[in-house]
């Protein structure tokens, strides 16, 4: 099998950064600062990466950094013991902080390595733009502030807005939280946050009845694989409410009503923890636009509480803290 590592031409995620990461991790593992490393290695499909979780310092050579480092690796942290090193993008660093806030991991057991990320390319968007599947595309690479896509012998250039992952818009790549080491600097490719909320805008413009029909259609496809929950770093409950049988909160059957309720309750549970990393939408096998929900949830949390999840490890978790001046009667 050929494993491809595709490095962009003009972005911060260069071969040099990759080499630096490998060297640093190897040294840190040799010293014992890191006992277990969580990073990315080349995936087995084109334009993909896959999580690498290892205790072997020789594996540092397998680490990669490129515009396809989609996964939010912080999801693996709560299950790992010992001193854990983790590669984070700026957005993922917020999830790590959220986990520290919720006491799912201890800060002292982590060694957080920030990698300069100028944006993750959403392969699903490239597929849509070209009308092709991932494996039919020959090359995807940064070219200045554009992304060059080669297929069938031709190269087409797309604006970053068209191909970046929704969660990249409005990102501040130098806004790392809690890193023990940062491997360089990156400029934001698209500073305009609005580009990432086009679906939300579309939904906001609908009348409630129309919106209801929209979600009914989307959730009719849900097969209840729970992929969204499983890749979510802040869905860390030992036992999810959907698995409770006494009382049974919702039916385990994939009826659209229960599918919708499952997601609505999940959103309520992650509000104030969710960093809108976009993983749930990226991995949904039936293409439900869950990112519209997480984007909106983040906005509502900001509006009501002026709170942004995962920005301060010492801040009490929003939904688990009580203030004397709470206005709700039920809280007094």
């Amino acid at each position: 099998m050929t494993l491809r590592s595709l490095a962009p031409t003009d972005c911060s995620m260069t071969k040099e950064t990759e080499k630096k990461l490998r060297d640093e991790v190897q040294a840190l593992m040799e010293k014992g600062t890191i006992e277990r490393m969580v990073g990315y290695e080349a995936g087995s499909l084109k334009f993909s990466t896959t999580p690498l979780i290892t205790t072997d310092k020789a594996d540092a050579e397998r680490l990669v950094i490129n515009p396809f480092v989609h996964s939010n690796l912080s999801v693996f942290l709560p299950g790992l013991c010992g001193k854990v090193g983790i590669v984070v993008k700026e957005c993922d660093s917020r999830s790590v902080v959220a986990l520290i806030q919720d006491k799912q991991v201890e800060r002292k057991n982590l060694f957080i390595i920030g990698v300069p990320c100028s944006g993750v390319i959403d392969v699903a968007k490239v597929e849509k733009l070209t009308g092709l599947d991932r494996d039919e595309i020959d090359e995807v690479a940064w070219k200045g502030k554009k992304v060059a896509v080669t297929y069938g012998g031709n190269t087409k250039e797309f604006a970053a807005e068209e191909v970046l992952s929704d969660s990249c818009f409005g990102c501040d790549p130098s806004g790392f939280k809690e890193c023990d080491m940062v491997l360089g600097e990156a400029e934001p490719v698209v500073g305009d946050k609005d580009s990432g909320r086009s679906k939300v805008k579309e939904l906001e413009a609908m009348a409630p009845a129309q919106r209801w029909e929209f979600w009914k259609g989307e959730f009719s496809r849900c097969i209840r694989c729970y992929g969204c929950r499983q890749v979510c770093p802040v869905c860390f409950c030992d036992r999810c409410f959907v698995e409770e049988s006494e009382p049974q909160w919702i039916s385990p059957l994939p009826k659209w009503q229960d599918n919708l309720i499952f997601q609505v309750i999940r959103m309520m549970h992650v509000a104030g923890r969710c960093t809108n990393c976009g993983e749930c939408e990226r991995i949904c096998p039936v293409n439900i636009p869950l990112g519209a929900l997480t984007t909106k949830v983040e906005e509502i949390v900001d509006e009501l509480f002026q709170y942004r999840a995962g920005t301060d490890k010492d801040a009490p978790p929003l939904m688990a803290a009580y203030k004397a001046e709470e206005i709700e009667d039920m809280m007094r």
């Binding site: 896959t50 999580p51 690498l52 979780i53 999801v75 693996f76 097969i223 209840r224 694989c225 729970y226 992929g227 929950r229 499983q230 890749v231 991995i283 096998p285």
Partner: peptide, 13 residues
């Protein structure tokens, strides 16, 4: 199995 997230995608599909 370290990187498996225990979802149902591979079996359901």
């Amino acid at each position: 199995s370290a990187k498996c997230v225990s979802c149902g995608i591979c079996t359901f599909l």
